[in-house]
């Protein structure tokens, strides 16, 4: 018995050490917010010499017209509607795939799976040109429109899998009772679909929040910049970069994600486990 306890103890220690190594960059980033440039470079000390919140205040204000408050608002204006639209469209499409055996269902579903593999790089140029013609560039429509029509096959796939796991009797009996298909969906299946909706919502939130490739291409005005672009701008807009301010804003920009993750980690893990998403 004793031997086993020692082994468990060693396992904990090893896991702890490795965990600290894993998280070290993030921990270092936190302390870097309180350091001067001289402390950040060429120094091994982890803890800062002082604990001034100046970097957060100055960083938040920025030297430009817009403060990070604006960038946060922009990010929410971009991310929240995108996420909600994705959930609405993907769940109804998934319902169509999972519960109706119209001719061509299987073929269409195969096409959907195939689009999982479609690299974004290949469609970005024509999409850009399409959005240009529609006058949508430099607006969040470039994100809302694809989300509104279920162009996220990952989430459709995930919800189809989930719906197939729910007994058909549930909604079929409701259908027999005279509910329309849409009512069946809203009243019976949607509540049951909650875990999948949560997972999909969390991932879409995360991905859109972190997205740089698309925002960089589609969004041009600084007044519409989300956090990712604002951060990128912060590393070369001023002549002598105050790295503590950059680090502080980088940290602040990911705090919502970390909070979200800790409050809903169950759904994250489930989401990855059921569909094998890249996360």
């Amino acid at each position: 018995m004793k031997k086993k306890e020692i082994r468990i103890g060693i396992t904990y220690i090893l896991l702890g050490i490795f965990g600290i190594i894993m998280l070290f960059p993030v921990i270092w980033m936190f302390f870097a917010c309180f350091k001067t440039n001289n402390e950040i470079f060429g120094s091994l000390a982890l803890l800062p010499e002082g604990w001034s919140l100046d970097a957060f205040i100055q960083g938040w204000k920025t030297t430009g017209t817009y403060t990070y408050a604006q960038y946060f608002i922009n990010t929410f204006l971009l991310v929240i509607p995108t996420t909600l639209l994705t959930l609405a469209s993907c769940s109804i499409v998934a319902y169509g795939f999972a519960r109706f055996d119209f001719p061509g269902n299987q073929f269409l579903f195969m096409v959907l799976i195939a689009t999982l593999m479609l690299p974004n790089a290949i469609i970005i140029i024509p999409r850009y040109s399409l959005f240009n013609k529609l006058g949508w560039l430099d607006s969040y429509m470039t994100f809302f429109a694809p989300a509104a029509v279920g162009c996220y096959p990952f989430f459709v796939f995930m919800m189809v899998q989930f719906l197939r796991g729910l007994p058909r009797d549930l909604d079929e009996s409701a259908y027999m009772d005279g509910c329309g298909p849409f009512q069946c969906f809203v009243k019976i299946l949607l509540p049951l679909l909650k875990p999948a909706l949560f997972s999909a919502g969390l991932f879409q939130f995360l991905w859109t929040w972190n997205d740089f490739f698309n925002t960089n291409i589609y969004i041009n005005s600084v007044s519409k910049y989300p956090l990712s672009l604002a951060l990128r701008m912060s590393i070369d807009v001023t002549s002598n970069i105050q790295w503590n301010q950059v680090m502080a804003m980088a940290l602040v920009s990911v705090i919502p994600l970390i909070i979200l993750f800790f409050s809903a980690q169950k759904y994250f893990v489930e989401g990855i486990a059921t569909t094998g998403m890249k996360g």
Binding site: T65, N132, D138, V222, S223, M233, I235, D236, V237
Partner: peptide, 25 residues
């Protein structure tokens, strides 16, 4: 007047993109 302070790096890319797609300041 909305000031759009950008960075030197990638400035030309941004300007040319904006001119091309009609979203220029």
């Amino acid at each position: 007047i909305e000031a759009e302070m950008n960075s030197d790096q990638g400035y030309v890319d941004k300007v040319s993109t904006m001119l091309a797609n009609g979203t220029a300041p």
